[in-house]
């Protein structure tokens, strides 16, 4: 029954999207309200979770804070709407939220069919493998013959099959219905390998009896580019959302961070001067003030700082930069220039 209703809902979403023309004035209504309404997940370690004080923190959350800071000079000028997976697109479509920053994979059908505009990729995720260190495995290609714990009925399971077949390796799947069961099975040593999205592996690792005895292998066998999205049809808002993300990455490329950004307004480097608003009218062109990027960086930090603070090696999650490093450091984070 729930499934039928859900698919009916999905159909209605698709229809509704076709008919609905998003109003073009998101920025105006945001400024009128005095806050950005931001859709986040109902709890995902390091991406959107609440801390002891009850404040939302995380990578997805910080993007919204940066967006709010760029507009209002105040990272608190944002209200978070926790959304379940089924609700998220409707919430964006119906105007309940202004931006969706909820570990959402950028796919073609979502970008076109569902009427979203993806802003960029704030986290390159992908399916990975976790193994006990005592196996002394350093690459997924050494996993031939291993028994692999995996959740049933997910794309994870399909990716796993494809990967092992493509590499001519045998494996022995240990399949469970629920996430908790998979965790318990791996914890009890019923399988050698645990596979799911790498960000998920990082938080599952923390729930094991001895997190330090386990490692996540470097290979990612699927592409899960996660990023924020906005409604189609409001180019100005899309531009703002997109360039706030680019500004955060540019800032890291140019060595601008939350500590030194104020001094950087005096910088000689024209790239930095344009970014922090000392030169040009880039902010005004998107409907904001010229120091929009400065405000975002000042309050929230550059992309690197956001990453390190929420999921990086210094946090309990200990996720390496990997693909999320700047292109200059072997990753694929690359910002279009502010020029």
């Amino acid at each position: 029954m729930t499934k039928i209703i859900l698919s009916a809902a999905a159909g209605a979403v698709a229809l509704g999207l076709g008919a609905q023309v998003a109003s073009a004035q998101t920025l105006e209504s945001v400024q009128e309200n005095g806050y950005v309404q931001c859709g986040v997940s109902t709890g995902l370690a390091g991406f959107s979770n609440t801390d002891d004080a009850g404040d939302w923190t995380g990578l997805d959350v910080d993007y919204c804070r940066a967006l709010a800071a760029a507009i209002f000079d105040d990272p608190e000028a944002v209200r978070f709407t926790p959304l379940s997976a089924v609700e998220r697109f409707t919430a964006l479509q119906s105007g309940e939220i202004d931006v969706l920053s909820r570990n959402t994979t950028w796919t073609m059908s979502r970008d076109t069919d569902l009427g979203l505009n993806f802003v960029g990729v704030t986290f390159y995720d992908g399916q990975g493998f976790m193994v006990p260190k005592e196996l002394e495995v350093t690459s997924a290609l050494q996993l031939s013959g291993a028994s692999v714990c995996v959740q049933s009925g997910t794309t994870t399971e399909l990716n796993l099959t494809d990967y092992f077949n493509a590499n001519n390796m045998d494996y022995n799947p240990v399949v469970f219905e629920g996430l908790e069961e998979v965790n318990a099975a791996y914890n009890a040593g019923r399988c050698d390998v645990y596979t799911t999205d790498s960000s998920g592996l990082a938080s599952i690792r923390l729930q094991l009896d001895n997190p330090d005895d386990h490692m996540i292998l470097p290979e990612l066998i699927s592409k899960e580019p996660l990023g924020p999205s906005v409604r189609q049809g409001d180019e100005q808002w899309f531009d703002i959302a997109k360039w706030v993300y680019y500004a955060l990455v540019s800032a890291e490329e140019l060595g601008v961070n939350s500590e030194n950004v104020e001094e950087m307004t005096e910088s000689e480097n024209p790239d930095i001067r344009r970014l922090v608003g000392s030169e040009g009218t880039f902010g005004e062109d998107i409907g904001l003030e010229n120091d929009w990027a400065l405000k975002a960086i000042k309050h929230v930090g550059n992309y690197g700082e956001i990453f390190e603070r929420n999921v990086g090696p210094e946090t309990p999650l200990q996720i390496e930069r990997g693909l999320n490093a700047l292109y200059t450091d072997g990753g694929v984070q690359y910002a279009m220039p502010v020029r």
Binding site: T50, D52, T315
Partner: peptide, 28 residues
């Protein structure tokens, strides 16, 4: 009500599990 993104008692307890500062085998 958790499934529509409202945090009742159980929902907020589960939200607490996702705080990486408290992730441990016993937390949940």
């Amino acid at each position: 009500v958790l499934i529509i993104g409202l945090f009742d008692l159980l929902g907020i307890v589960q939200l607490g599990f996702t705080d990486p500062n408290w992730s441990s085998p016993q937390t949940a």
